Computed example of a mutant assay.
Amino acid sequence: MKCNTVHNKLIFFLEKELPVSEMEQVQKHLGECSECARFATEMKNTLQFLDNDKVNDENPFFYTRVKERLSKQAEEQPAVRPFLVRILQPVAFSMLLLLGIYGGFKLGQVPKITTADTNMTEQEVIPYWNELEAEPIEAFLME
């Protein structure tokens, strides 16, 4: 068995999750190859350190405190509020949506030219439509 294959199967070997035949092959390779054996011992020490570090300090009263807090919140909330929220929230969102659509139409409208303003050119109605004449550097580069 090659060293790379042993390295790939080493964690499963240490956790004893390999089939018996592969366990024997890895064990045989570790007996022959000192470098892989050293790597296996380092891996085993690391896994033991991680297992020891996984200690969870569980508080036995955590569940009862959470349950009590949830029941207090349920008692404190008035019964009218969910009813108002269910009705007023969609109405408010609908009003905001309609207001946004109306504002979009208003912003998108082009100003109409009246008969008194017929002497105005398009450049005066939309002053920044074409800034090419106002920028001599751009005009110079375009020529």
Rank of each mutant, 00 (worst) to 15 (best):
T41V: 13
G31R: 15
N130R: 05
D117T: 06
N4W: 11
N130A: 04
N8M: 08
E124C: 08
D53H: 00
K106D: 12
Y128G: 10
E138G: 03
E135R: 12
V6R: 01
K9Y: 13
R81D: 10
Q123Y: 04
Y102S: 09
R81F: 09
D117P: 01
L88A: 07
Q25R: 15
A37G: 02
Y102E: 06
S71G: 06
L50W: 01
E42C: 04
M1R: 02
E32K: 13
R65H: 10
S71V: 08
F140R: 06
W129G: 14
E17C: 13
F61Q: 12
F13N: 03
T5E: 15
F62R: 03
A92S: 08
N119E: 11
A40I: 09
T5Q: 13
N59Q: 05
H7P: 00
V125L: 13
T121W: 04
V80S: 06
W129M: 11
I137L: 12
F62K: 05
F62L: 14
K54W: 00
K54N: 00
L18E: 04
L97T: 14
A40S: 15
R69S: 09
F62H: 07
D117E: 15
M23P: 01
L84W: 02
L10F: 02
N119I: 11
V6F: 03
L98A: 07
W129A: 13
P82M: 06
P60K: 05
C3D: 15
N8W: 08
F83K: 08
C36F: 03
A40E: 13
M142G: 02
P90H: 01
V85H: 03
Q77N: 08
G103L: 14
K106I: 12
R69A: 12
G100R: 12
L132T: 08
F49C: 01
P127T: 06
A139S: 05
F105L: 12
P78S: 13
E143I: 06
A79G: 01
L18V: 14
N52C: 00
L141K: 09
C3S: 14
F12I: 01
Q27Y: 07
E138C: 09
P127F: 05
Q89V: 09
H7N: 07
E143Q: 07
K54G: 00
